[in-house]
Write a protein that binds this DNA or RNA. Structure first.
Lengths: 206, 206
DNA sequence: GTCATGTGTTTAAGATACTCAACATTCAGC
DNA sequence: GCTGAATGTTGAGTATCTTAAACACATGAC
C-alpha cells in the first residue's frame, strides 16, 4: 500500500487548453469516445486492435489526459465508420424523441391510402420509404453505423427488438422509430413469426 | 554552402498515416490550412499570433510534416471563426457556380411582382431574403466568416466589389452571387453612388 | 548596392503524445 | 476462497509534436 499517489501524472495539458479558454467550444473528446465505444460494446483493447493503436492510448484519450493528434484520432475513429468531423458534431445523446408508441403517430390519410406521421409534421425531413421483412431470429449485428443521416420506420406485423445508442426497446405492430443513423443501431427479431417494417432513410443526395 | 542537406528531417510520419491506408479519407490538412490562411490574407506569423502557436508550427502543419494534436489544431482554427468539423468538411474550392451574369438569372415572375432565380431552380435551398444598401466606400472587411450556411443576393443599383474565397469580381445592377457563407467574403462599394442589394441567407433554424 | 522589413523554412531543445508492459480490479466458474 | 480471464489504469521509455531562434529569400526605401 505504498502506492497511494494522489493522481495527476502527466501534466493535464488538455485540461486548460481544451476545455478552458476557447472561442469555439470543443466537445469532450474523452467522454464522446467512451460513449461511442461502449455503445458498440467494444473494450478498449478491442477498439485499439481495430484502430492500430494501444489500449493505453484509448484509456488516456478517454480520460482527457492527452489531446490526441489528428492522425491518431483518425486511426481510432477508423474503428468505426465515422469521420472526425462527424465524431465532433454528432449528438451522442439524442435529444430528439427516438421511440413512438402506436397512438403517438399522427394519421394523415384514411381509407384506401393512409399515412401515419412519425415525429412532429414533416419538418423539412427529406426521407425515402422502404419495406423490410425480418424472419424470426434475424439479426443485423451491432456494427451498423452509416453516415447517411436519418432513419425511420414503422412495424407492420410481428415484433422487433431495436437498439439505438445503447437504448433497447421491443416494438410491436404499429410502433415506430426515428433516429440519427450515425448512432449505432441493431435490429433483432426475437419473435416467432416474420416481422414486417415500413422504413425510410434520407435519400443519397441532399 | 555546406548545408545542402537533401530534405527530409522529421520522419514524414503523416505521410503514410494520414494520406495512405485510411478507411475514411482525411482531407489534406496542410493544403486546407494554407488555402484558408491565404484566403484571409494572413501570414504564418500573423495567424500564429492569433492562434497562440508559433509560426514554425503553422509552417510544419501546412507542409504536412506533422499531424497536429486536436488541441493545437483547435487553437490554430480559433484564428478563424471555424470549428474543426467545419474545417475538415468545408469545400474550400467551391465547385458550385459562384457568380451569375444578369442574363443567367431565370425569371419566375413578371409584371407587378417579379422573381429572378439565382442558381438552378430552388433545389431544396431554404433561404431567407434581405435588403441591403452600401454607401460609396463602404467595406465589410475581410474577416466576415460565419457558420450559417449559404448566402445569395442580387445587385439592384450601383456597383459592388465582392470577394469570395479569394476570387474578386465587381458586380453591377442585375448581377448576382451565391456561395457557401463559410468561405471568407467581403463587400466593398468601389463606386460613387449607393449600392442596393437584395440578398438572402439560410434561416436560423434548419 | 545596402539596409530594413517581411515572408516561409529549418534546426535543436523542450514538451507532449504514444507504446509496452505491468498493475489493480472485477467477475465467472469451480 | 481461489483461480483465470477480462477489464481499465498506470509508469517508464520512445516517438512525435511544439517552440524558439536562426536561416534563406524576396521586396522596397534610401
Amino acid at each position: 500500500m505504498t502506492k497511494t499517489n494522489p493522481r495527476p501524472f502527466r501534466r493535464a495539458h488538455g485540461g486548460e487548453t481544451l476545455s478552458g479558454d476557447a472561442d469555439i467550444a470543443l466537445p469532450d473528446i474523452g467522454q464522446r469516445l467512451r460513449e461511442l465505444r461502449t455503445m458498440h460494446g467494444l473494450s478498449q483493447r478491442e477498439l485499439a486492435k481495430r484502430a492500430g493503436v494501444t489500449n493505453g492510448t484509448i484509456s488516456l484519450i478517454e480520460q482527457n489526459r492527452i489531446s490526441p493528434s489528428i492522425g491518431s484520432l483518425k486511426k481510432v475513429l477508423d474503428g468505426f465508420p465515422l469521420s472526425i468531423a462527424d465524431f465532433l458534431t454528432l449528438d451522442l445523446k439524442p435529444r430528439n424523441k427516438v421511440f413512438y408508441a402506436a397512438k403517438e403517430l399522427r394519421e394523415i390519410g384514411a381509407g384506401a391510402i393512409s399515412f401515419r406521421l412519425v415525429g412532429r409534421d414533416t419538418q423539412g425531413r427529406a426521407i425515402q420509404m422502404m419495406h423490410e421483412r425480418y424472419q424470426p431470429g434475424a439479426d443485423t449485428g451491432q456494427d451498423m453505423l452509416s453516415h447517411t443521416g436519418e432513419e425511420s420506420g414503422i412495424v407492420v406485423s410481428g415484433l422487433i427488438e431495436l437498439t439505438v445508442g445503447g437504448e433497447t426497446r421491443t416494438l410491436t405492430a404499429g410502433d415506430a422509430y426515428y433516429f440519427d443513423s450515425r448512432l449505432p443501431h441493431r435490429w433483432r427479431n426475437t419473435g416467432t413469426i416474420d416481422c414486417v417494417i415500413v422504413s425510410a432513410c434520407t435519400p443519397p443526395s441532399f
